[in-house]
Design a protein around this nucleic acid. Structure first.
Length: 328
DNA sequence: AAATCACCCAACCGCACAGAG
DNA sequence: CCTCTGTGCGGTTGGGTGATT
């Protein structure tokens, strides 16, 4: 007998999340930290099941998420890992900390799979084709598991080296970072700022929708929502005109700057000052602070980039067969 | 301008697993 | 052990949107 569905209750809302719901959810998590999802709907008054809240957070609202515009390196990595691991999207996503498994899965299903099909039929050449051909050789399960373990070991080692004070990756000058560039460019920024910027980008999307369809009123079922209401009042000062327009405006610099102010007023975070290395506001609860620090670590150059280069080398090296013979 | 098509992706569904009691 | 609960994961769906006719 299977478990009953978690969301079969009457009155549980389904479908796309509204900006109000997003803000309520983010506000709650900012205050309490993620986890204990069961308590989220009751505490916030959201008419969503706990699972839906968790999914919304992990796939969309969580800080450090990079969306869209997969780079060629990411693309190759996904293809290689998919050939190696199969459709284990969570495992694949663990190699791309800024991407969610859902995102990778979608990208694979809607784009890469089709492209590789073309490659297989020989209608498209290039490095991808060669790589896929080499990667499509079946690898015994035990072998790739050992390789993964070795890989993890290498990543940890690289991480330790990267985090040792005398080997820190030099940070760019504050003036070098142009806010009008996309989030990818902000990868060079400090740990706190990358997380913040990504968060702002995430929130940008909900704000965009928010400004399109401003609610007439926001229900206030709890104190949490009341505080959210005041946050929403802050949002009302947001420049409507600048948030209108095409989707490409999402990454627009001026919008991001305004968002930083808006986001700051909403959460009390520090500003988008790349010379600042401050963590999030001390107004956060200890749990939430710990969490956001963890989250921001995930979005850092140190973790995302250093192990990536090693993994990339291993994954993309055409002569990896010789490496295999060395390792095993 | 309207209709149709194709694509993208957020969100849902259901199963599996782990841990607590 | 067994049950219950929370969470993780992969497959799938359906609404939105841009492109094409």
């Amino acid at each position: 007998m299977g478990r009953p569905p978690c969301c079969d209750k009457e009155g549980v809302k389904k479908g796309p999340w509204t900006p109000e719901e997003d803000i309520i959810l983010v506000s709650y998590i900012q205050e309490h930290g993620p986890g204990n999802w069961r308590a989220v709907p009751t505490s916030t008054g959201l008419s969503r099941c706990s699972k839906s809240c968790r999914l919304r957070w992990t796939n969309y609202l969580r800080p450090g998420i990079k969306r869209g515009n997969f780079t060629e390196q990411e693309e190759k990595m996904i293809i290689h890992l998919q050939a190696l691991l199969g459709n284990r999207w969570a495992a694949i996503a663990s190699y791309l900390p800024q991407r969610t498994d859902n995102d990778i899965k979608n990208y694979w299903n809607t784009y890469l799979k089709k492209r590789l099909k073309k490659l297989e039929s020989g209608t498209e050449g290039g490095s991808l084709g060669n790589m896929y051909n080499s990667a499509s050789k079946p690898i015994p399960r035990g072998q790739w598991e050992r390789r993964l373990q070795t890989d993890i070991h290498m990543a940890k080692k690289a991480l330790n080296e990267a985090l040792s004070p005398n080997k820190m990756v030099p940070l760019p000058e504050p003036n070098d970072t142009n806010l009008s560039n996309d989030i990818g460019s902000i990868k060079q920024a400090t740990p706190s700022s990358i997380s913040y910027a990504s968060s702002a980008d995430n929130i940008a999307r909900l704000l965009k929708g928010w400004m399109k369809n401003p609610p007439n009123k926001v229900s206030s079922k709890s104190n949490s929502i009341m505080s959210t209401q005041s946050s929403l009042n802050n949002l009302a000062g947001f420049d409507t005109a600048s948030s209108e327009g095409t989707p490409s405006n999402r990454a627009n610099g001026s919008t991001n700057v305004e968002l930083s102010e808006t986001f700051e007023s909403l959460f009390g975070y520090g500003s988008l000052d790349y010379s600042s290395n401050s963590e999030f506001s001390p107004s956060l609860s200890p749990e939430a602070s710990t969490f956001f620090q963890d989250e921001s670590r995930f979005g850092t150059t140190s973790i995302a980039e250093i192990p990536f280069s090693l993994l990339e080398k291993w994954l993309l090296d055409d002569t990896k067969s010789s490496l295999d013979s060395t390792l095993f």
